[in-house]
Amino acid sequence: MVKAKTVIIAAFSIVSLTSTLLLIWLSLGWKVRKARKAFERELIKQGMSKEDAQRLSEFYKTLKDQITSTVMSSFREQ
């Protein structure tokens, strides 16, 4: 009985962890987009052209890719 309870709780923890990570990964794209737009807006306010501001905000995408690959690789290693 105790063993079954332990297995159920462990399975629940794994499912909860996986679903939370999936949710974070899905919402990440939206958050990056919002941050990028806010960043571009501030640069355009100071007189920078839209094209230059967009080019500068590319670093957000790079940073997102780096963080995602870091997290994924740490999970793969385990």
Binding site: R36, A38, F39, R41, E42, L56, Y60, K64
Partner: peptide, 15 residues
């Protein structure tokens, strides 16, 4: 790193 507020702050610094 990836929030509207963080983006605004970083944008302000760069601007």
């Amino acid at each position: 790193v990836f929030s509207e507020e963080a983006g605004k702050d970083m944008g302000r610094a760069a601007a």
